[in-house]
Amino acid sequence: MLNQNDFIFISPETGKPYYLEVMNEAMRKVEAACQIKMHPHMLRHMFATAADIADVNGDDLRDFMGHETEEMTKHYTHQTQESALKIMQKTDAILHRKI
């Protein structure tokens, strides 16, 4: 579980965490280059979605993200083409299982 002093984005030059304003500026550059709306908090959503697609245990993901309920963690995950395909493949395997 992450603690208050655990940081995700560390400067390779200094070994110290980036300030929020540095992250916001990086996201503004992404917005300008890609013409999409972007902010650092979206990275939590992207991480949760990637973990969900990778079948990370829901309780483990909830604990890692610091959420009290799995419902809150589910709020962070979003349907993607990859997750939809995975659901279809699992369903197909169940429906066509030889008995």
Score class of each variant (00 low, 15 high):
Glu82Thr: 15
Thr77Cys: 08
Ala93Ile: 02
Met23Tyr: 10
Asn24Cys: 12
Gln4Met: 11
Asp63Gln: 14
Arg44Ser: 05
His96Leu: 06
Lys86Arg: 10
Val30Ser: 02
Pro17Val: 00
His67Met: 00
Leu20Val: 15
Tyr18Trp: 03
Tyr18Arg: 00
Pro17Tyr: 01
His45Val: 05
Asp60Cys: 03
Thr80Cys: 00
Ala33Phe: 07
Ala54Ile: 02
Gln35Gly: 07
His96Val: 01
Gln81Trp: 10
Phe47Asn: 07
Lys37Thr: 11
Asp60Gly: 08
Gly15Glu: 03
Met46Cys: 13
Gly15Lys: 01
Asn57Thr: 03
Glu31Ile: 03
Glu70Leu: 09
Ala50Asp: 04
Asp63Thr: 13
Lys29Ala: 15
His67Arg: 02
Gly58Ala: 11
Tyr18Leu: 01
Ala93Gln: 10
Ser83Gln: 06
Ser83Lys: 02
Asp52Lys: 03
Arg62Cys: 01
Glu71Asn: 04
Ala54Leu: 04
Leu20Asn: 14
Glu13Lys: 11
Ile87Ala: 14
Leu43Cys: 12
Ile99Met: 11
Ile53Glu: 01
Leu85Pro: 03
His75Pro: 02
Asn3Tyr: 12
Ile87His: 13
Leu95Phe: 07
Thr14Pro: 04
Ile99Pro: 08
Ala84Asn: 12
His75Cys: 09
Leu85Met: 13
Thr91Gly: 09
Ala54Phe: 00
Met65Thr: 06
Thr80Phe: 02
Gln89Gly: 04
Ile87Lys: 15
Met1Ser: 07
Arg28Asn: 15
His96Cys: 02
Met38Tyr: 07
Met46Tyr: 09
Thr73Trp: 01
Phe9Gly: 00
Gln89Ser: 12
Ala33Pro: 05
Val30Leu: 13
Met88His: 14
Asn57Val: 03
Lys98Cys: 09
Lys98Trp: 05
Val30Tyr: 11
Glu31Asn: 10
Ala26Tyr: 10
Met72Lys: 09
Arg44Phe: 09
Gln35Cys: 07
Ile94Leu: 10
Pro40Met: 06
Asp60Leu: 12
Tyr76Ile: 02
Val30Gln: 07
Met1Lys: 10
Asn3Trp: 13
Met1Leu: 13
Phe9Arg: 03
Thr80Tyr: 02
Met23Asp: 05
Met1Ile: 10
Glu21Asn: 11
Gln4Ser: 08
Pro17Met: 00
Arg62Gln: 03
Arg28Tyr: 14
Ala32Pro: 07
Ile10His: 11
Lys86Val: 03
Gly15Asn: 01
Pro17Arg: 00
Met88Trp: 11
Ser83Asn: 07
Ala93Phe: 05
Met65Pro: 01
Leu43Arg: 04
Glu31Asp: 13
Ile53Arg: 03
Asn3Thr: 15
Lys16Arg: 06
Glu68Asp: 15
